[in-house]
Amino acid sequence: MQPEQGTRRGALRRLPLVWVGIAPFVLFVTLFLILPTLKIVIGAFQAGDGSFTLQNIRDLATGSIPAAFWISIKISVASALLGCAIGFAMAAAMILGGLPAAIRGPLLTFSGVASNFAGVPLAFAFLATLGPLGLVTVFLRTQLGIDLRALGFNILSFWGLTITYLFFQIPLMILIITPALDGLKREWREAASVLGATGPQYWRMVALPILFPSLLGTFALLFANAFGAVATAIALTGSSLNIVPILLFAQIRGDVLGNPNLGFALAFGMIVITGIANTIYIWLRARSERWLK
């Protein structure tokens, strides 16, 4: 065996061979993730006969579509912001607030359950609670004389959907931010304190900047999570609320827009929105993480 020759020949052979190992994966994601997405993107710029056009994109500005995008974005931003804030508060309470250590395990497990308890069953849970005959609605009306409906609350509305989405948004935040909060060293707080910083100063100058990338990443994820949520919305509101996923669902089912390629454009719009959210995230993260290389 001549080692030198052996390795050289091996290197030549290894290059394609190395790829064989992940060929199934590459094939799978190409066929069932990349190509379908590309099909949508390309279709958004094609006319019925397959020629290039920008008409579909222009048509997004017509009819109920802009309003659908607007309310979808509003719900996604609201539920992501509130989810981040409340999830952060709960995680911080658990880790930094001096609560008994025994709470941690159950709360994290529960978060795992709740963050996956989305879709149709979640909608029913909220209908049974805040719907017209729901537990809380009835209780408030019969026991306290508060009529939610009269106050303008409706589960089939912006706020109703936002509150429902929070049921999976908050736990997701808790799950993602807990490791980040664990990563805050006690010594940082102590060092800041002994240097004369107050609690708020420590949070503003040290802890929040350190957590910022994680907070931001979670926000982007929660946003995409809410923006693409179809099942909860459909089960909760049927088709009474005009949001993008419901519109697209109806379009795929029965071409309600009367133009198949407008469906592509609608889906393309969804990708663009979540894409923008994630680009902003990646850009801000890179900026805020200079101290990590």
Binding site: I40, N225, I271
Partner: peptide, 11 residues
């Protein structure tokens, strides 16, 4: 996580 499921299935 970024591309909504409804878009993928549409594709």
């Amino acid at each position: 996580l970024v591309i909504p499921a409804i878009v993928i299935v549409f594709g």
